[in-house]
Design a protein around this nucleic acid. Structure first.
Lengths: 341, 341
DNA sequence: TGCAGCAATGTCGACGTCGTCAATTGGCTA
DNA sequence: TAGCCAATTGACGACGTCGACATTGCTGCA
């Protein structure tokens, strides 16, 4: 591998001068710069970041740790957001996945520390934090899509599930729906309760009573191995004598099953039944016909802004150690929801 | 950060002896080993891989470059396969995405070279290769989910779309289907032609004529911004007077739209119409009711085995420079396909 | 003319690790 | 008892880069 000294020799200057040119330091003659750049281009020299890092104690590498989320379709966007931030800011991204396994997680932290990375984005599906302290030094960490357990304090960034679900519910009420079905997410998921609470709060705030709502559990069991009742429950709700006019699903994948149930009962969407989802998982939300009214989770921004928060933390900018940022989830109105006539 | 010398001081030995213990070299007293390990544990020492790498010229880091694929739901499994391989083999994974942009791609290669990574897995959706030679040194590279353009030779690993589509078609024929609809993928995709060719070959081999097949284009246009005709075409095919008994979709997302079209026409799946997909994208294939007969793409294995091939290449094991590996796609029979009565 | 002041460039060593080779110890043989 | 060998341990330098500091040469001004 060609080193800075090779360049120096070819350019007929000292290695330090090459270093100056490479790092854009001042006080180098235009003439010298040209000589050096010529040599660099000729030799195809690329600075060795490892060597640089052992001097500077910075690697410009950030790590992403994912748990189960890497098996879900969502994760891609978070990671992409981080990558794009990194690309725009001269950083590189190390990726590791734990599958929710404690030992693997401990290993990942060790590896990241061995690489002396600058910081970690911990992307989880759970309200849960384990940051094993392998040694006393710990790495700046931002939690993405989750927040710290009580008693721990890490900066975090999350979607505002509550706000999104509230807006969604009000959208339905504004359309005149007064009898609404609701199929719940797996209660283990962080967003499950927030979404349901917001639904109930919005409904009550607009004068609906408990009798106006039909709430069913769509899934339960450990993440990745849950039992799924969605289709059955959807069929059931939609077959009720006093069928609701709208059906809210915990997420878009549940909405897919609700579609299938509705269609197989001969119901038309949205004429006979309004169906809405949550997540704006586009494979589903745009794949369904009519396209699905849902709430967009800001996954990409979670990644991008999470990376930005992490950067603040690394730079030691004030206040970021405890920041808990929440990103808006915006209602996406499509053709699956309509006014009650 | 605590270094090997700190450990040496605490343990009362030389840095070299600590190095020996850390790397499991022979000829160290059990007594010394214990002293050193005690000091390591006490200080929380973790070896600095960057420093190690500038001596050894190996980083044990492999890079993944993705293009558009990172925006598709598939990529996750490939990446997970690579990560799991890396975890099991003591490597770390650097991740970068190009969004198909030439400049970004060139940058990514530069960055990877700057990190002196051992090799690259280039994960693409296209039959297309650009490996810009920034300088004369090039990094061992394996193409995943694509292969080299004519004239270039890189090792590659791909799914056997042809074989999978052939099996799928024969499955339908075995079930007695003699009139079959087919909705094509975007012709830009590598698998599109292979799947169609296999379909035609299997059909002809079993005595079907061109008149028995209704072939439509489901999508066209640049990746990520294609126009989608699937729902319309599915409605059209299913409304034909001599409706086919089975409908083959280019992938599972297309099958989703076919389901919706069929159901909205009041057809029951599979009683009135058999529908099959391709990919086994589980959000869809298991989310559909009845669950979808499809062909599983070995994405996870593509990642794992791709990483393994890359490792061979890095180690310089013979023959691997031109290997072109193809992985079987296996038919997954579920309830959406049934015998014609 | 002499010298301060500054720009341009170079020398040297340190970062953390490990390969090379030398030094030390203890035991065993002749 | 001298001599030898193997096992154990340490001293030192090199990897590629850059920070601290030194050197060189030139300009401008008293």
């Amino acid at each position: 591998m060609v080193s800075i000294k090779d360049v120096a020799r070819v350019a007929g200057v000292s290695d330090k001068t090459v270093s100056r040119v490479v790092n854009g330091e001042p006080n180098v003659t235009a003439d010298t710069i040209e000589k050096v750049q010529l040599a660099i281009a000729g030799l195809g020299y690329i600075p060795n970041l490892a060597a640089r890092s052992i001097r500077s104690n910075r690697t410009d590498i950030i790590g992403i740790i994912t748990d189960f989320i890497s098996t879900t379709p969502y994760s891609g966007d978070i990671v992409r957001g981080v990558q794009d931030w990194a690309g725009a800011n001269g950083r590189t991204v190390l990726l590791a996945n734990t599958d929710g396994d404690q030992d693997r997680e401990a290993n990942v932290w060790r590896t990241f520390k061995a690489h002396r990375i600058d910081g970690v984005l911990y992307v989880a599906m759970y309200h849960r934090v384990v940051v094993p302290a392998a040694g006393e030094v710990s790495i700046p960490t931002v939690l993405v899509n989750s927040h710290a357990e009580d008693g721990y304090s890490y900066p975090s960034i999350e979607p505002d599930d509550y706000g999104g679900a509230y807006d969604l519910t009000r959208h339905l009420i504004d359309l005149g729906h007064r009898r609404i079905g609701y199929i719940r997410l797996n209660p283990l998921l962080l967003g499950a309760n927030q979404r349901l609470d917001a639904f109930l709060a919005a409904a009550q705030a607009h004068g609906l009573s408990e009798n106006d709502m039909i709430i069913r559990l769509g899934m339960e069991g450990p993440i990745g191995r849950e039992t799924n009742y969605v289709y059955r429950e959807a069929l059931d709700i939609l077959s009720l004598p006093d069928r609701p006019t709208a059906l809210v699903c915990g997420n878009d994948e549940m909405a897919l099953q609700a579609y299938l149930a509705a269609l197989s009962l001969g119901l038309r969407i949205p004429d006979d039944i309004t169906i809405v989802g949550f997540d704006d998982f586009r494979t589903v939300s745009l794949g369904l016909k009519p396209e699905l009214t849902t709430v967009a989770l800001p996954y990409y921004d979670l990644g991008w802004q999470g990376a930005d928060m992490l950067d603040q933390l690394i730079q030691g900018k004030g206040g970021s150690e405890t920041e808990r940022r929440v990103l808006r989830c915006s209602l996406v109105t499509r053709r699956s929801s309509t006014r009650v006539c």
